[in-house]
Amino acid sequence: MLIALLIFSTIGQLPLLSESQLARLLETSKGEVLVVNFWATWCGPCREEFPDFVKLHREKADLGLKMVAISMDEPEDEKAAVAFLEEQGVEFPAYLRGFEDFEKFVNAIDPEWSGALPTTFIFDRSGKRAFRHVGKTTFKELIEEISPLLEN
């Protein structure tokens, strides 16, 4: 948590996430319930739902929830992305898209994902994808889906 905070508040930068790093992130998150949110600063619904992820993380991190946000902003919009994350009080790892090939990047998380924003993926503790939300989610939906996964 501290590392994530340091990453984008003191340095003011977001680490880039490549195709292989995304795959590794999924692999190393086994054992936890992983929530991955893809967003962008210009995406209205993304910004609207973002506080729910901050709240979700605050309430459920102790129970084994791992939250990760991946900004799909262009590299030159990184500052705006960092400013938004700071304003939201984000205390979980956040990255900026850093792929060479978008198709490989998408396939690393879900070959059936179109690339729509916002999209949120939920993985159970075994690393199996349990839910994919294309479009805006609600806190209620997230809790209903995640709570049973945290109990396992």
């Binding site: 995406c43 619904p45 799909m72 978008f102 198709e103 998408v106 179109s114 690339g115 729509a116 924003l117 916002p118 999209t119 294309v134 479009g135 805006k136």
Partner: peptide, 11 residues
């Protein structure tokens, strides 16, 4: 078929 990228259609 190719991957698309964009904003979700607001229904």
């Amino acid at each position: 078929q190719t991957k698309m990228f964009g904003c979700t259609i607001k229904r």
